[in-house]
């Protein structure tokens, strides 16, 4: 059967199954188990209403449990075993991993990514959001800068591989170098700085995201605060840094953390650009180099990523609970 047909069938079965489940389970609850009639009608309605939320939640809870909660435990458990899972070696994988120079490189690189990418993307996003705020063609400009959001990391990597290409007849950067009389260089092999050339790709993609959200936040600032500042004689820079930025600080933090989380997960860019060579390895791509080869090591790396993300997770939960009160 062709995958296309299979896909159509799955949509039908999946969607039909979901709708059928929700409909049928409700029907059974109301008509068969706790019918809202007869001598116990009142009690039955209450009981049915106590159970119904769980009917609504069941598929989601099952899927979340199986696909996100179980893996956290499963991955940790698996990381305590050796390559083929036959021998329990305690933290052996973690110990050999920390002894591996490539792992330490990827840890340092990941730290650089986390430091640079969210900061740069938020900075450019804020800059563009502010600059386009009162511009007649601001919406067109924003939509063009937002565009890379739609492009896959693989597509973006190809786009930038072309920009960085060694051949001055293909790569814009080397063409400029040759134009100004320098020799072309293979940018992806320039030690240390090649990390930043890769980060540029993610910044290029994420700036649009930061811009859209910060632009909405800037629009939400009460007009009076800005007007009051103007009357007091503040110049545009003072208005921006002393009036506007403090008021949208909360949104800036949200944007910053969202991009930080993303940075810790993105393996596509390094994988397509350098495969982790030339000292550009980061944790997610380091993990993929062990995937299918050494599950013990792969899960150990994944768990390290999890530990790095953990503070953000806790902070998110605390924020969410605060809001609900």
């Amino acid at each position: 059967m062709s995958p296309l047909l299979q896909g159509l069938m799955t949509i039908l079965i999946g969607v039909g199954g979901c709708v059928g489940y929700f409909y049928a389970s409700n029907l059974i609850l109301d008509k068969v188990i706790f019918p809202a009639s007869g001598p116990k009608a009142g009690r039955n309605i209450n009981r049915a209403n106590a159970i119904r939320p769980w009917l609504f939640l069941l598929p989601a809870v099952l899927a979340l449990g199986l696909y996100l909660v179980y893996p956290v435990i499963g991955s940790f458990y698996r990381s305590l075993f050796n390559r083929d899972g036959t021998e329990f070696i305690w933290f052996g994988n973690y110990i050999t991993m920390f002894g591996d120079a490539e792992f330490r490189t990827s840890l340092v690189n990941n730290f650089l990514w986390v430091l640079v990418v969210p900061a740069a993307a938020t900075f450019f996003g804020l800059l563009i959001a502010q600059l386009t705020d009162r511009l007649s063609w601001g919406n067109i400009a924003k939509s063009l800068i937002f565009m890379p959001m739609a492009i896959s990391f693989v597509g973006a990597s190809l786009i930038w591989r072309m920009v960085y290409a060694n051949n001055p007849d293909i790569g814009v950067i080397n063409a400029l170098r040759v134009f100004f009389g320098a020799d072309p260089v293979d940018l992806l092999q320039v030690a240390f700085w090649n990390n930043f050339f890769l980060m540029v790709i993610l910044i290029w993609i994420q700036t649009g995201f930061a811009m859209v959200i910060l632009s909405a936040a800037l629009r939400g600032i009460p007009e009076e605060t800005v007007e009051a500042a103007i009357i007091d004689g503040a110049n545009p820079f003072q208005i921006f840094f002393k009036i506007k930025v403090p008021q949208i600080m909360g949104t800036i933090v949200v944007v910053w953390t969202t991009i930080t989380i993303l940075v810790l997960k993105v393996f596509d860019i390094v994988y397509t650009m350098t495969l982790g060579n030339f000292g550009t390895q980061i944790l997610p791509s380091y993990m993929m180099s062990y995937m299918f080869r050494d599950d013990g090591r792969a899960t150990a790396v994944a768990f390290v990523i999890m530990i790095i993300v953990l503070p953000v997770m806790v902070w998110n939960i605390i924020q969410a609970r605060k809001e609900m009160r």
Binding site: L57, V61, L64, Y67, L68, V69, Y70, P71, V72, G74, S75, R78, I261, L264, K265, F267, P284, M287, M291, D295, A298, T299, V301, A302, F303, I305, M306, V309, V312, M313, V314, N316, I317, A320, R321, M324
Partner: peptide, 20 residues
């Protein structure tokens, strides 16, 4: 449950690959 959903938002995908 809501707190759990918020927490699961950031679980790295990498963790799920091998066990699943």
């Amino acid at each position: 449950l809501i707190a759990a959903v918020v927490g699961l938002l950031v679980v790295p995908l990498q963790l799920a690959l091998v066990p699943l």
